[in-house]
Design a protein around this nucleic acid. Structure first.
Lengths: 355, 355
DNA sequence: CTGAAAGCGCTTACAG
DNA sequence: CTGAAAGCGCTTACAG
């Protein structure tokens, strides 16, 4: 039904071995022969069957990108970036997602990428030394992004410091009741980033002598709707936060939406800071921690490709910079609601302003 | 280096044929034998080499999703939806993107999905009968989404009517200088949707007796930044529009951002309507045409899977509904700037209000 | 229910 | 520079 290398060989009047060589730009093919083969292949509309090719021992010229999901702005953007540089090098990129029930387990059990790709960039999941080790041992050249283990080349940002900067910004503005929105510890995906970002959050609070209020540390998912739901719960607290730090911009968008629905003014009554600098963050005026996802993805692809081309000299770990972008969703803490007893010339808001 | 079916056969003390059958849940395997094989495979951490498997004639249990890019919210969401239902059926989904220089041509030339997938859903590109025909002829079961040709089963929304509704909304509000942001005709990707949406736009204008002003029909790309750039050009026109209809929410976000930078009040001075109901649209308060991308993707996967399971009885074309969601970015047209000569008791804005 | 063998379409030593 | 042949790891008739 389909045209094979034999058809091409017959038409070009050479052996299949020669066709194989000619088509893959190997040396050792006379120019005239090569031309004849190329012409025949073109006329027949031939492309090598990738399965046969790979089974016979050739490279796949595809790299894998393992991500929790592709439904998130961060990961979709990552994919696009990886694919862009891979394409320039003649590689395809094949995503492996781990979302869905049992997705992570199945990924770890089957390691579906082995035999399917020449190399793999593993982004954000799975994490934990054991799981990473299992992947590393599968025998395909590996680079991790976000997660990290000493023996595997990696790329990441400093999540702790970045989120610390975000929360420092909030405490500088006088906020003390600051909520944290991130993935929970028992999330099946167990992302590492949210954990580190929470650490940064706690560090920042500690610096100003505030003990974290567990009710303000809430587990959200990753979608905008998740952010809205979490924010709504926060608003219903007896003592709601004056600021919310969300570990992704998408969660922050949800917070903004929920605030609007509740007629809570941002930033007058509530400050919100996100993380990512999502393409829509500027349009929303969101204060956020910028990470250059495009650059991260491109660099990951570059390094993996380099790894494939040459034996790795050693294990390198790269840390990319981030930057706090202050826009219009963060402002000084509002004066606390004046209770009858507190009325008087000594306004609490003045005190705050001194800090 | 890697464990093969032979290793499993040896350990289970059966032939490789039996291993193959047992592992693929075929009948004709004694329960006890099957158990032994499963145990051996488990202990050896065996998974069949997909390439060998496919080469030997088995199905790939993967379906393809061909999209212009995965960098767009619409397509990323589509992918996630397709993957969710595919996973439930035990299928993987493999994306084929056509973005980048020469991407479309290469796709059409190589048809890289053939031999790689059991079926393909083709979303939005390529379009045009000839190109679609070339893909259809490759021999893999096909379903198109967005684009459409009589001989291939398809799924889509009514782009003309949907965008007409959006622009009708604007004309109902008294707008007459309404700009259109979409892909250009000579876009290498030649999406069909923008063309249909422009038709709807023109129809709506014609209904109120307005001739389209070519300067208000602008070719934008697909990103938020593209939308901002296009909007800025529009703002610089001698007679800028009072409303902008963008063919995607992402473009609309860019418009909103550009408006903010120019201190143009939305909706007081400018109305904007998008298309998609992007996850962030609610958070932005964007008036838009909602299409249920999640449902579209899920349905596409379902139908393709059904096609694979049973010989298609006939070619079905499905049209999914859309809905105009009016939020806070659209309002009555502002009164035209009062020129000195026009001052007086007869305010033009009153006239508008009657319409 | 199970096995021996052919074959899927390539690539890669090995000769020449 | 080119070809004949083995082999990659499976699946599928074909026998039994």
């Amino acid at each position: 039904v389909s045209v094979t290398i034999e058809d091409v060989a017959r038409r070009a009047e050479v052996s299949v071995a020669t066709v194989s060589r000619a088509l893959r730009q190997l040396p050792n093919v006379a120019p005239a022969t090569r031309a004849r083969v190329l012409a025949a292949a073109y006329e027949l509309d031939y492309v090598a069957d990738p399965h046969a090719s790979r089974l016979a021992g050739a490279r796949t010229t595809t790299i894998g990108l393992a991500v929790p999901t592709l439904g998130t702005w961060y990961h979709a953007t990552l994919f696009a970036a990886v694919e862009r540089v891979a394409a320039e090098a003649g590689y395809e990129v094949r995503p492996y997602t781990m979302s869905g029930p049992g997705g992570l387990e199945r990924f770890l059990l089957d390691l579906p990428f082995r035999k399917g790709v020449d190399g793999l960039v593993l982004a954000d999941a799975p994490n934990g030394p054991d799981e990473l080790e299992r992947v590393a041992v599968a025998g395909v050249p590996l680079l991790t992004l976000g997660v990290w283990t000493p023996s595997v080349p990696s790329l990441r940002i400093d999540d702790v410091a970045s989120s610390r900067a975000a929360v420092d910004h909030l405490t500088d503005l006088g906020h003390r009741r600051i909520a944290f929105l991130g993935a929970s510890d028992d999330d099946p995906m167990r992302f590492e980033a949210p954990i580190h970002r929470r650490r940064g959050y706690l560090d920042a609070l500690r610096t100003v002598g505030v003990a974290a209020d567990p009710r303000l540390v809430v587990a959200a998912g990753s979608s905008i709707a998740d952010g809205a739901a979490a924010a709504t719960r926060l608003f219903d607290l007896p003592a709601p936060p004056t600021a919310i730090f969300a570990t992704t911009d998408e969660l922050a968008f949800g917070v903004l939406q929920a605030a609007r629905e509740r007629r809570i003014e941002v930033p007058a009554q509530l400050s919100v800071v996100g993380f990512d600098d999502h393409a829509a963050a500027a349009a929303m005026g969101l204060t956020t921690v910028r990470q250059d996802v495009e650059a991260l993805g491109a660099r990951a692809a570059e390094r993996l490709l380099a790894l494939l081309a040459a034996p790795p000299a050693g294990v390198e770990h790269e840390i990319h910079p981030t930057e706090l972008i202050v826009r219009r969703t963060s402002a000084r803490v509002p004066p606390p609601p004046t209770r009858p007893a507190a009325r008087g010339p000594s306004r609490p808001s003045d005190r705050k302003r001194l800090q």
